[in-house]
Design a binder for these strands. Structure first.
Lengths: 255, 255
DNA sequence: GAGTGGTCTAGACCACTCG
DNA sequence: GAGTGGTCTAGACCACTCC
């Protein structure tokens, strides 16, 4: 099966660019056509090098690109594999729901891996966003969100200390705790953008370093207008779709 | 100035991981602290290798990561530079506006670089989204959007041929043309996600291959419910922020 | 033509996984 | 302990930019 993909024949026919890109294209095609399916292993790098007649460095460079694109996964000491398919989740963006509630609605399990759940000295960014005073501390809830064992997002929530005096009290849903205290936000503003994940964040989400992530910053308000929540989240770009419904702007808004 | 960054001293103090990451960290810090400012050039790779006592391959690997993150830019035959800063643009996500109108509102110039503006044989995806019949063609408007000379987005719009029989008629604003024909959408559904840009798309946007982009798919509807527009856009992750306002879901919606 | 980044090689050792 | 990916080296040639 791998004979055609990794045969030495056909390289450098003068019209095809760098060798590592030629090999990369061959592998990508094999994945696209199903010749290599999710979970299948590729031959060891040294074997691929021998088969293609390329050096191992060149083979690694070809594989590296596909790993960055999320098509392949490498496990040290184990091998190189076609990436398992991820089920894409779709979420409505214009409703102020919590991750926990959202997953429960579609019958998915939710787990949190805690990174932090305590009071800290606030960063300048947190002081600004939450309007903290000098000497105030900040409650930080930092966790990796997983559903059915698959990491989906990193969530870093900051709240004023009087809103959440005891961060350890949060078990699964932050919003459930806030609801009990009568401090659940009724309105929020989100800013969405895309960024390449840092090595650390990529590791937490189980993807390759540099993979694309959806960065969402949210500021939540009480009915009184007070800021109660400042959350920065990173969603896996390959696993999440946000859906929004748009309407025609009214004439006042268009000026 | 570069002496501290690229000195041979301090490498491999047994607690710092791979050499290329150590060098990468040094350079990233120099950029973060302003020791290296936007547009500044780094020494040639061979010089960095000599100064640090590392091999050129290792130096290249350190630089490669920073290029992928968008912190550095490499120009063949010319040199390696600290990436120029991009002004981030913020856009309201829940209003159905056009790119042209949006930029005009903030006093920015808009240019389009046309990639395609004609009738084509539709892809299966376009047939599905637009509800095309057998034998129907599709009007495709494909362009790179720039503002003040900076490429911001790639926009690929597909429309039924009777909605836009002559695609070449679109000059700047697609919505303006649709408006004249009385076929401007009043409602749309968008799906937002993040993806690493392909080499081709990255090139069109003037960023490094693999940089994170915001992928937006939009389907626009007439008041009658008919689909008139199917648009796939890629926005530069480093240049765009989308803003959304959220509200508390009503009780019916939450079940 | 001198200098730059881009590609490629052969060979080495290390760190990790797995039977 | 055998096999895997991860790191690193020294040296070479090519393609491009810029003077």
């Amino acid at each position: 099966m791998s004979e055609t993909i990794f045969s030495a024949a056909g390289f450098d026919e003068r019209h095809a660019g760098p060798l590592y890109l030629q090999l990369q294209r061959r592998i990508a095609e094999a994945v696209a056509t199903g010749q290599l399916g999710p979970g299948d292993s590729l031959p060891p790098e040294r074997d691929m090098a021998a088969m293609t007649g390329l050096s191992r460095v060149t083979v690694r460079k070809a594989v590296e690109g596909l790993v960055a694109q999320g098509q392949l996964v490498q496990r040290r000491g184990s091998g190189t594999f076609v990436a398992p398919q991820v089920e894409r989740l779709e979420q409505a963006l214009s409703l102020l729901t919590s991750f926990t509630e959202d997953m429960a609605r579609r019958g998915k399990s939710v787990e949190s891996i805690w990174l932090s759940r305590a009071l800290h000295v606030p960063s300048p960014e947190e002081v600004m966003a939450l309007g903290l005073g000098a000497g105030d501390r900040v409650a930080r809830i930092e966790r990796v969100r997983r559903s059915d064992g698959v990491p989906l997002a990193i969530e870093r929530a900051s709240l004023p200390p009087d809103v959440l005096p005891d961060p350890a009290e949060v078990d699964t849903s932050l919003y459930a705790v806030l609801h009990l205290r009568g401090l659940r936000p009724v309105r929020a503003v989100q800013r969405i953008s895309a960024a390449n994940l840092s090595a650390r964040d990529a590791d937490l989400l189980g993807v390759a370093s540099g993979a694309a992530g959806l960065k969402i910053e949210r500021i939540g308000y009480l009915r009184s207008g007070r800021v109660v929540e400042f959350t920065r989240s990173l969603y896996r770009g390959d696993a999440y779709d946000f859906a929004v419904e748009l309407k025609l702007p009214s004439d006042e808004e268009r000026t």
